[in-house]
Design a protein around this nucleic acid. Sequence first.
RNA 1: UGGGCCGUCGACAAGUGGCAAGUCACGGGGCUUUGGUCCCCGCAUCGAAGGUUCGAAUCCUUCCGGCCCAGCCA
Length: 704
Amino acid sequence: MRITNICYSQDDGSSPSAANNFIREIIDGDIESGINGGRVATRFPPEPNGYLHIGHAKSIVLNYGLARDYGGTFNVRFDDTNPITEDEEYVDSILEDIKWLGAEFDGRVFYASDYFDQFYIWAVELITKGLAYVDDLSPEQLKEMRGDYNRPGVDSPSRSNTVERNLELFQQMKDGKFGDGERLLRAKIDMKSPNMNLRDPIIYRVLHRHHYRLGDKWCIYPMYDFAHGFEDSIEGITHSICTLEFENHRPLYDWFLDNVTTENRPHQYEFARLNLNYTVMSKRRLLELVERKLVKGWNDPRLPTISGLRRRGYTSESIWNFCERIGVAKRNSTVDIGLLEHSIRTDLNESAPRVMGVLEPLKVVITNFPDNEVIWFDAPLHPEKHEMGTRKVPLTKEIFIEKEDFREDAPRKFFRLKPGGEIRLRYACLIKCEKVIKGPDGNIEYLECTWDPESKGGTSPDGRKVRGTSHWVSASHGQRVEIRLYDRLFTVENPMDTDGSYLDFLNPDSLVVLKNSVVEPYLGSAVKGSRWQFERKGYFYVDPFDSADGNPVFNRTVTLKDSWARIDAAKTKMPEKSVVNKVPELKTEKRDEAVSEISFDDFSKVALKCARVVKAEAVENADKLVRFELDLGEGRLRQIFSGIKKSYPDPSILEGKSVVVVSNLKPRKMKFGLSEGMVLATEIGSEIKVMLAPEGAFPGADVN
RNA sequence: UGGGCCGUCGACAAGUGGCAAGUCACGGGGCUUUGGUCCCCGCAUCGAAGGUUCGAAUCCUUCCGGCCCAGCCA
């Protein structure tokens, strides 16, 4: 007898534990040196003044993951020290989102506002130690005396007040003897510090405002820098993790903790916040989109908010997975939204049942199909997971297929239905297009097809090859539904990084509502919140708010990867092999005959066209020249040189943008090659700026 | 121009002096009743220049580039 002993290591790569990162290294070091007795306590400290977004999810996953993996604790703490912006509504939504994400806090929900009494005691301790003083500077004076990066600050006259006087004044602040802004409590640190945060920062301000939890109990409120470390200390937090912009605040965090009597000494560590392209992530921006009604609320599926993603159909697992794979580091970075989409596709590919839905219906009449017959086919709900079972799909004489699955003038690689062509109706049979029926306006009204009764189930009876398979729905049995197609909110990768307002780059097609879509009868009973794959079209989520029993409304979570769409798009843009690096002389000479040189007294003959910048690079050995490769929708790329180098040291930022080109100039031979036209630019002061056409302008479109 | 932080493939990101992980994207091929999934293959000398070393992405020096800080916001 032979015994085979196979040992699997604990970490075989399949375990979901998060990748290593610098914070884990710090914790490993702390545990090794016995700091905090090896205890790990983290927290997620949102301010209740907005909804959570996926950037917060990154923080939650980080903090919760640390506590989980090190056997520690995880707190949720509302950092509610500013009564002006905070609200109960946000507390509720934040808690809901954290729960939905699956970070268990087990009742460990805390509020900074519960610590105000203790904060007050510590403030008094600082005053008593001569480390804080009450000031009466106006905002203007305060700003002026703080100095700037190159100019040290100046001590306020109040800085030398006695401890007794400060104690008395602070008590009066608390007792409401002063109006808003009339007095401040300041830490006495160093007005000459190169770190502006240390120039006697404000600890308490007078604010006669109603706090959403405490009502009117207080009229003085602590500032973040003073409060945050204390909040951590009170809760026994060991590792206080925040984002990069707080790095300059860490000396302050430490200063407060070191100058007051506390039991626990937490430490602050900073990591890079999450940025995603084609969207905006700051609370201020999201709030603006919501308030200006550019989206339909905080949970609009186009928003990167947790509630928006949830309504879009994202699963918490996919968000969790995404947050783990993007990593944690100190480098500012922008993650490709494609990675988020990949996360949800991976999840839904596994779990979503497959069904058929026709987004934009085109009617097909199967002429040789018996008039009132209905054939029910069994169709599996998942191609790999048989255990998910099957459902029945009815085939009738009249059906709908997807409009884009038929083309009259089909390109060579178009495997779908075309006149005289044959395709398979998924799970059902083979049909052949016999006739295209058009209306008086020339639009296609419907298609007449014939079916091969021998092909039931979709197999070809004689082994003939049928490349295309289309999804379809019976016209008589299908159900008309509303489907919402979502796309990226902005047309540019970094909306915040553009000239002008980011709002100028909102994608007008970020939401497309389809009212005439048709789905197979099985979906009539789809329950709210369920997720489906419409074969070949994408993953869809039954909107929990707008759906009714028996009448689902579908939100498209994400499309399927579509390699045909890529081929097709590339084809219509550049039908033949694109000319990239060299412009063939021959071709150019032919062009010469067609395009005549013009002079400026004949300005009306100037042809201005939009062109998409495919490539833009500085020309080596030329002082001013930038070489463009431009798509004017001509099936080839044009090379144009432009003297704009000094204003565009890195011309590649223009790639993907649309510019305006004088297209009918005689090509000019230059030292570096042929220049076929002129890119319009304007001089602004000493800068030369290229004139940009609207994003997404069709290459070759005329400019008036 | 003061201080703090950061520069590894198109996008993220491991790597901590011994021959540059992984993921996404991209390209090529296979399979396929989803142009989906899946499978295979390809894809960087580490911001630059000097130096230390047998050996450097990792250490030193200088330079270049990016981000953050002058709220009684967090």
